[in-house]
Amino acid sequence: MLGMIFTEMVEMIEETFSPEMADEILDEANLEHGGAYTAVGYYPFEEVVTLVSLLSQKTGMPVPDLIEAFGSYLFNSFTKSHAQLLVNKHSLFDLLDTLDGDIHKEVYKLYPDAALPKFNVVSKTDHSLEMEYRSERNLQPLALGLMKGAADYFGHQQVQIEQQPLDDGATLFRVSI
């Protein structure tokens, strides 16, 4: 998994909870590299699971909520570090529509080995959008958080997102603004 996810997560824990908690979790996680994450590196997916589980234990908050919160945090962070990706995009739907085509293409330029989820817009009107989500990691809460972060970024006051599992293991997101 991209090192950026880890560095952002550590930063979120430090900012949202406390630097001490972040230190404890990294310490307790007993990682080979001792938690020395760099944004340009790659790390096993299990480490995210370990970190989020430890955070859940310490805060008593459910794991999906934490991951969703992280998604929102992560999007907010993107708007600062990768602002060029959002040029010419004026709404959540603009973004989602070009997620696979534009955004992920740019991501691959920076991280050729990234394993990104697939997004496929199946229908779109002015106020609603249906999108299939496919990922080996099944990080639907992360996607949800990212979308909510984006909705917030674009100033959509009332956004509703429903999830519906599909037969082939994918998830259908129904987004309305």
Partner: peptide, 11 residues
């Protein structure tokens, strides 16, 4: 600090 240093070296 140790983690940051290690991460920098790794980077």
């Amino acid at each position: 600090a140790e983690r940051e240093r290690t991460a920098r070296k790794a980077a």
